[in-house]
Nucleic acid binder design. Structure first.
Lengths: 102, 102
DNA sequence: AAGTTATTTAGCAAGGATGCTAAATGTCCC
DNA sequence: GGGACATTTAGCATCCTTGCTAAATAACTT
């Protein structure tokens, strides 16, 4: 039993890696990116065979992970990819780089 | 319904991202890496609070994902990290790089 | 060969994730 | 303001994952 556990960006890894663990969510990110970085929820959902509501949940997971943000525009919501957040993954990978090999 | 789905290295992404989705497994990789790239199952398990068997399963998942390999040495098994396999993650991230910005 | 050490496999319970349908919310248009 | 459109929230069933304990395998030791 550890005295006290710190949870600063530890949770961030958890959220991001968790979000990327599902093929549909990875595909959502790619889809939005190749569409210029932003799409409405409807456009995104249309790409998938899933029910609308299922995609909505995936979007929520991605947003909670910080990989997506949304803004309202009238009755539609525009989701925007947060490329910067993906660097967290790169950061984690960097632990395994040649140089750091200690 | 798509005509036919190809699954070449698609499954590889699935396996690797799936494996990295669990904090314990990410920690196993870091542990082995910072221990010089190889450790026995026992040494790895000793690092965790989990029951031995639970860690064994994590090792299996990581191995199935290609992130670890093992070789027998007497009655112990030495697990070795496959850094190269992590590049698959880097490859995926590369889709979002500035340059490739379609 | 019997016992000890190192590790995996099997089987089960609990919790979480995923996908669906139905209902709710919020906005636009006549 | 009433209906159509865009999207989310709720609730439920199913499946997958994780963690555990018990049992099995396999290699060393005496």
């Amino acid at each position: 039993m550890a005295q006290r556990e710190q949870k600063p960006r530890v949770d961030a890894y958890e959220l991001v890696f968790g979000a990327l663990a599902h093929a549909a969510r990875r595909r959502v990110l790619l889809t939005i990116y190749f569409n210029g970085g932003a799409m409405t929820a409807g456009e995104i959902a249309a790409v998938f065979e899933h029910a609308w509501q299922t995609t909505t949940r995936h979007l929520r997971v991605l947003e909670k992970a910080g990989l997506l943000t949304h803004e309202k525009q009238g009755r539609m919501r525009i989701y925007r990819i947060q490329r910067k957040r993906l660097e967290l993954v790169r950061d984690w990978l960097a632990h395994f780089s040649e140089n750091t090999k200690h």
